[in-house]
């Protein structure tokens, strides 16, 4: 079954909807230390499946969801996820990002992907000033939020499972 979903290209990357083949790289990420900030318990492959299917289910349930990030010329190999989503327990919709593989770190790739996904949230979904929830230990992710022009919002309500998160709020007008 193939569906007519949005996909975008930036200078170096493609953003597309999740596919079954992304499960293997997602699971490798989820089972590793790299996922420590986005899970609350010890990882298992069963939990990895549930979390990924849940993220894919967002597209079916809400008509938008997280995009998978790939190199522009290698669209089959997922490197991470970025985008607007609204999972259970969140007080408001979120712009999130996860880089699954260290291979694309330190090159501004996450920034490039997040800028494009945020543009989609603002221009197509009509979002205004969305939040990003970030684990207070996750320095790289906070640096990305700041580079995106988001600022700490100490008054924002947090997801009930993530009381230790820091909340960043994106600017009203895109830089």
């Amino acid at each position: 079954m193939s569906f007519d979903f949005p996909s975008f290209s930036t200078d170096r990357l493609t953003l597309r909807v999740p596919q079954a083949q992304d499960l293997a790289p997602w699971t490798a990420f989820f089972m590793s230390e790299r996922s420590q900030y986005i899970r609350e318990t010890e990882p298992t492959e069963a939990l990895a499946w549930r979390a990924f299917a849940h993220a894919a289910g967002m597209w079916m349930l809400r008509g938008y969801g997280s995009f998978v990030i790939t190199h522009m010329d290698v669209p089959d190999t997922a490197l991470g996820m970025v985008g607007p989503w609204f999972p259970v327990g969140w007080p408001e919709p979120e712009l999130g990002w996860m880089i699954w593989t260290p291979e694309i770190e330190g090159q501004g790739m996450a920034f490039e992907a997040a800028v494009e996904a945020r543009r989609y949230a603002y221009e197509v979904l009509g979002w205004e000033r969305p939040v990003s929830y970030i684990d207070r230990e996750n320095k790289r992710s906070m640096a990305l939020a700041e580079r995106l022009g988001a600022v700490r919002d100490p008054d924002a309500e947090k997801p009930y499972e993530n009381k230790d998160d820091v909340v960043y709020r994106h600017p009203e007008v895109l830089p």
Binding site: M1, F3, A53, A55, A56, G57, L61, V88
Partner: peptide
Amino acid sequence: DDRGAYLDFAQCVGSWFLRG
């Protein structure tokens, strides 16, 4: 609980996407 029930629903729905 609320969270578990919804996660299970969303992942069962997500199967349309991943499995057809």
